[in-house]
Design a protein around this nucleic acid. Structure first.
Length: 585
RNA sequence: CGGGGCGUAGCGUAGUGGCUAGCGCGCGUGCUUUGGGAGCACGAGAUCGUGGGUUCGAAUCCCGCCGCCCCGACCA
């Protein structure tokens, strides 16, 4: 039994000045966590109870799926990460340190290497597969900017698991098993979440999905189709390709004088003033904007890329980076332009773009720029634009690219419309494939005695982040409203009143509830006023609150439901059973 | 790393050149109080982030440094 009179807890009446998101504010005010350094937190007794409840659910579902728990060190040697190139690829996000001999060490940001090497050390036959192992471990990532409290720390707890299979079909089965286990886990946590397609990105491999808890404070933007159920991270959204248009009646392309129109807006204004369209006004969507980037490959090679897209859209850097990964795009700077005199800044057009052209700029188009679409675009001469330039007739590109910003109302592949929302990434599952097994030489013998590289899946849950994600979704203006399985207790029992009787009865009831197997948080503080106790109970968010006070004189105790706010006056003699029923409902 | 803001008691804050740094919460002692953050009295708690400078006098003005928060870039 937890007694408030002795609990190591101090709730705060005021919001901490630095806390911005609801979960951070409430977890701090309710005395569950305290910030120690940016992105680094301590768990106090009540918070640690909540944390362990979440961890227990995650572990239980992993175990139920038949996965086996292991535990790696958080402090790791450099060498395995050197072999997979992550010692360098992880960059500044890796916490690095040296031991007394001067050897490089790191605090593990994730443990693919360790899992792979462990399996390599023990298993060597296809008969040993499939294998699923997991750990719940503190991870360290030196984020450039930790924020939002527990939601995004530099030290956090993650459950990471890995599957090992001999072939692709096995990997798919393993992936599906994990997906099911994750659904059960997040359902038990009482979360409202979506499963979205994600970019497999750096890790390689094919299938990849993210579990996003709905929250306006989430850092991931995703889209959902209002009609077909499709959901995807913005980075992974694909744009439907419009049907090609006939262009028989379109006049031949012609260059016009358009002085001082380096921006789309100025170009549209000038076009309407000097070259009116007749049937309607020109808009930004009639222009073809070409944005150039310098792209750096992992091996250091640099090349130029132009993205052509309708003038009413911006390039979404996140989407561009996601498609190009692991290469890194940066906007052209003055020296890049200087090196390519055929590119007229502000007036760049398809005429100068393409790998075959002198500037050697790889030219990729937004899928919306299909054959037959007609555009106003740069003529590659400062102060002039081309009109009626028709895609497929007057120009072609090296390919297409998904890099344009996504907007609410954009079309889905199914013909429906997409809407955007934000979410907190609570889980990520993906088919790693053979990248790590290859790099670390994890092979097993198949049934023909031939050596085969193992194929892996990688699956993560942000355990500590889950606590914050649940808090984001389960609170009201008074405080936290934990789902029962997550809550630090089943019953928050408040004793109050000037007579001795309620205190005696409350003690008795607390003991009886505990004997019945319920977890009891007993507010037995003598000095605190009723108002303080009620407010603390609401802040802390235990689902069932019981008040033994002045109504005991009438044989009544009060049972409150924290979430619904319902209050029931219950005869003392029925109280025990009533509370047990309420907690087991 | 770019842009913005802020460092005053455990927490929230006032104080823009004048000597004793103020208030609320919390904390301690005593009395009163116990159904919605109680009252009274007394009390403890701050080298005003840090180093230097200006000045008769600096929390306050100037310069450097450190730290923190927010937006962006980046990320479970």
């Amino acid at each position: 039994m937890l007694r408030m009179s002795t609990l190591f807890l101090r709730t705060l009446r005021e919001d901490p000045a630095d806390a911005v998101v609801p979960s951070d504010r409430l977890l701090t005010r309710a005395g569950l966590v305290r910030r120690v350094a940016p992105g680094i937190f301590s768990w106090l007794p009540l918070g640690y109870l909540v944390y362990r409840n979440v961890e227990r659910i995650v572990r239980a579902e992993m175990d139920a799926a038949g996965f086996q728990e292991v535990h790696f060190p958080g402090l790791l040697p450099r060498e395995p990460y050197e072999r997979t190139h992550r010692w360098t690829e992880y960059g500044d996000n890796l916490f690095r340190l040296k031991d007394r001999k001067g050897n490089d060490m790191l605090l593990g940001p994730t443990h693919e290497e360790m899992f792979t090497l462990m399996v390599k050390g023990e298993f060597s036959s296809y008969k040993d597969l499939p294998l699923h192992i997991y750990q719940i471990q503190i991870k360290y990532r030196d984020e450039a900017r930790p924020r939002a409290g527990i939601l995004r720390g530099r030290e956090f707890v993650m459950k990471d698991s890995y599957s090992f299979d001999i072939d692709d079909a096995g990997l798919q089965r393993s992936y599906d098993q994990h997906r099911d286990a994750y659904i059960k886990t997040f359902d038990r946590c009482g979360l409202d979440y979506v499963i979205v397609s994600a970019m497999s990105g750096a890790m390689g491999g094919s299938a990849s999905e993210e579990f996003l808890a709905m929250s306006e404070f989430g850092e991931d933007t995703f889209v959902q189709c209002t009609s077909c159920g499709y959901a995807a991270n913005v980075e992974a959204v694909t744009t439907p390709v419009p049907v090609a248009l006939p262009f028989d009646g379109v006049p031949a392309a012609h260059v016009e004088e358009t002085p001082d129109t380096p921006t789309i807006e100025s170009l549209v204004d000038l076009s309407n003033a000097r070259f009116p369209r007749g049937d309607r006004a020109w808009t930004a969507a009639d222009t073809l904007k070409n944005i150039v980037f310098r792209v750096t490959d992992p091996d250091g090679t640099q090349w130029a890329l132009a993205v052509g897209l309708p003038g009413d859209r911006e390039v979404d850097m996140k989407r561009l980076e996601a498609v190009l990964h692991p290469s890194v795009p940066e906007p052209f700077d003055e020296s890049d332009f200087a090196a390519r005199p055929t590119l007229a800044k502000g007036y760049i057009g398809p005429g100068a773009l393409g790998e075959a052209k002198p500037a050697k700029v790889r030219y990729l188009l937004d899928p919306r720029v299909v054959e037959g679409t007609r555009w106003i675009t740069g003529s590659d001469i400062s102060g002039r634009h081309v009109y009626d330039l028709v895609a497929g007739r007057d120009f072609a590109a090296d390919g297409t690219i998904e890099a344009a910003e996504i907007r609410d109302g954009d079309a889905c592949q199914c013909g429906g419309t997409l809407t955007q929302a934000r979410g907190i990434e609570i889980g990520h599952i993906f088919q790693l494939g053979r990248k790590y097994a290859q790099a670390l030489d994890l092979t097993v013998l198949d049934e023909h005695g031939k050596s085969q590289v193992v194929t892996m899946g990688s699956y993560g849950i942000g355990v500590s982040r889950l606590v914050a994600a649940i808090a984001e979704q389960h609170h009201d203006d008074k405080g936290l409203t934990w789902p029962r399985e997550i809550a630090p207790a089943d019953v928050h029992l408040v004793a109050t009143g000037k007579d001795e009787a309620p205190w005696v009865k409350a003690e008795e009831l607390a003991a009886a509830l505990e004997a019945a197997g319920l977890r009891v948080l007993f507010d037995d503080r003598r000095q605190a006023s009723p108002g303080v106790k009620f407010n603390d109970a609401e802040l802390i968010g235990v689902p069932t609150v019981v008040v033994v006070g002045k109504n005991l004189a009438n044989g009544i105790v009060e049972v409150r439901d924290r979430v619904s706010g319902e209050r029931a006056d219950v005869p003392v003699d029925d109280a025990l059973q009533h509370i047990i029923d309420a907690c087991r409902a």
